[in-house]
């Protein structure tokens, strides 16, 4: 009883002191977080909320926006150019296996420390440090009808392979996707190299002791250990494919020929700044966000299901 009451009398006091210390630490944490939270609220949460609000309005940028309910979204469903742009984005997303396989293979090669691996690591990463605007301007020159690529093909008797790379609707999108993959795969190589550096070597050695071939080790051990890295890289690619390549496309093709390389972010820019339909452009942004969510979520679920 005494003990119990003693314990009972001491417990709450200790608890109060502990609680006070705990709440003091909690307050400190919040104080440290506060500047970042304020910045987040002002620079990200508020603009996003405002963009969602604007998606339900008609706004030309001059007069005040007025609410039009779901009209922008209804118009989007009928908008041929938006649908076409979305298909182009999906074509970029469909190229994900290449986007994963190429840096994965290159990273594996570098990881085995082939001769000159440091040089290759640098060379493969180099395109990443170039601005998309520079890449767009550069490839605009290289791939011109009378540009160096066609010139080189003609000079070695392969003139039949020379094409209007940036003026053929059937060719231009694959060309753009190729350039995008080339421009970004250096990041993938670095990410996969980091993954490979953290491999559980014991499992690899155990597989070797069990007599597994290099291919079997790669397929049954390394690949499965790298699956979280692949998952991460996939998410990055999907988000980037919808949001990161506007400067490249703008400088390389301006969405052309015709609308052959229009992507959703290009369409958004065009609606906002050429057509002056800022409410509609906001609706495109909102839809884009949901598409990114669904696509990323679906792909991650698929990869996790495969892993399980």
């Amino acid at each position: 009883m005494t003990a119990s009451s003693g314990a009972g009398s001491v417990g709450p006091r200790t608890g109060r002191r502990h609680g006070a210390r705990h709440s003091g630490r909690g307050l400190t944490r919040w104080l440290f977080l506060l500047p970042a939270l304020v910045l987040l609220a002002v620079l990200i949460v508020y603009p996003i909320g405002d963009a969602i609000r604007l998606a339900f309005t008609s706004w030309d940028g001059f007069s005040a926006p007025h609410s039009i309910g779901l009209s922008n979204f209804e118009d989007l469903l009928k908008d041929k150019r938006f649908k076409e742009s979305l298909l182009h984005n999906l074509a970029i997303v469909v190229a994900i296996p290449i986007w994963i396989a190429v840096p994965y293979a290159v990273a594996c090669g570098i990881h085995t420390k082939v001769a000159g691996w440091r040089f290759f690591r640098l060379v493969f990463f180099l395109p990443v440090v170039l601005s998309p605007v520079v890449l767009g301007a550069y490839y605009g020159i290289v791939l011109a009808e009378s540009g160096p690529l066609n010139g080189a093909l003609r000079s070695v008797g392969l003139g039949g392979l020379a094409h209007e790379w940036l003026n053929d609707p059937a060719l231009t999108l694959p060309v753009v996707i190729g350039i995008i993959i080339w421009a970004t795969f250096g990041v993938g190589v670095l990410i996969f190299l980091a993954g490979l550096a953290n491999l559980d070597e014991e499992i690899v050695e155990a597989a070797q002791v069990d007599g597994a071939s290099r291919w079997q080790i790669q397929r049954h051990v390394v690949f499965w250990q790298l699956l979280p890295v692949i998952e991460f890289w996939t998410v990055i690619i999907v988000i980037a494919s919808f949001t990161a390549f506007f400067p490249l496309i703008y400088t390389l093709t301006k969405g052309g020929p015709g609308t052959a390389t229009f992507t959703v972010d290009f369409d958004l820019y065009s609606e906002a700044f050429t057509s002056g339909r800022l409410g509609y452009a906001s609706a495109i942004g909102v839809v884009m966000m949901f598409i990114i969510l669904v696509t990323c979520g679906g792909l991650v679920a698929l990869l996790r299901w495969r892993r399980s």
Partner: peptide
Amino acid sequence: TGLGFGLAGLLAIALVACGGGGD
């Protein structure tokens, strides 16, 4: 995870949210 994707996507639409209506 969903919130993370959401914020990333929403960043994209913040493109058109700079400024606001006004008379």
